[in-house]
Amino acid sequence: MTDQVLSQALIEEATKKSGLIWVRGDGPSRPLWHVWHEGAAHVVGDCPGEQPLPRLVSGTTAEVTVRSKDKGGRLISWTAAVSELEPHSEAWESVVAELKGKRLNAPDAEQMTERWARECRVLRLEPKDAITSLPDGSLAAAPLPTPATTRHAVPAALPRLLLARKKKRAQK
């Protein structure tokens, strides 16, 4: 019993302090901003102007990985029971009030909650059971191929130009 209470406290404290969590449902993990409210992480998204959510359906589970706010490394990983909140329900209203306070740079701050009710999904990610082991490896995705590059050979004239500047400074 004590281990479960400590696990829940660790999940809550780590998730509250992290501004970003990684959530994996049916598909790749996605970084999501969230709020911790009444024993669960809550996220909003899947609509224009908001974060894309991973494929999550009510009644399923998701894997949540919490990162350190200061160092960015993985702190803890836990399994969450997923449920979608019904727009304008009592639970939805209390969560959206919290989410609205953390939403940065909203283009429509006055009508944001109505837009969320019409177009977005608000999900509750409630810790289930206990802490899971952290995934192995970096989990970094390979960058997409692109013709853009930042590495080029040093121009042939550059060493002479830099040397000429140093000579001028030395003569002064």
Rank of each mutant, 00 (worst) to 15 (best):
S58K: 02
T113P: 03
V96T: 03
R74V: 04
A170C: 00
G19D: 12
A157C: 08
A9V: 11
K17N: 15
Q51G: 03
P87I: 07
D26K: 03
D26C: 00
R30Y: 06
L85W: 09
A157K: 09
H37G: 03
W22N: 05
L75R: 12
A117Y: 01
S133M: 05
L10E: 14
Q171F: 04
W22V: 01
V95N: 02
E84P: 03
K17F: 03
P159V: 02
L53D: 07
L125W: 11
G45I: 10
E38A: 13
T150D: 09
Q8D: 11
K172V: 04
T2N: 10
E84S: 04
E90G: 05
P87R: 06
A156E: 15
P48S: 12
L163W: 13
P127A: 09
A40F: 06
D108A: 05
P145K: 10
G39K: 04
S18C: 02
T149H: 11
K166I: 02
R24E: 14
E84W: 03
D70S: 15
P48G: 12
W36I: 11
R55Q: 08
A106F: 07
M112P: 00
Q51K: 04
K167Q: 07
G73H: 15
E90D: 12
A106M: 14
E114F: 00
R169E: 08
W22S: 09
I131R: 05
A40Y: 08
P145H: 08
L144C: 04
K128M: 10
K172S: 10
Q111P: 00
E12F: 04
A81G: 14
E98Y: 01
L53V: 13
H42V: 09
P52T: 15
E84H: 05
T60P: 00
H37E: 13
V43G: 10
W116S: 00
T149R: 15
S133I: 03
A157I: 06
P147G: 13
Q4M: 09
W22A: 07
V64Q: 00
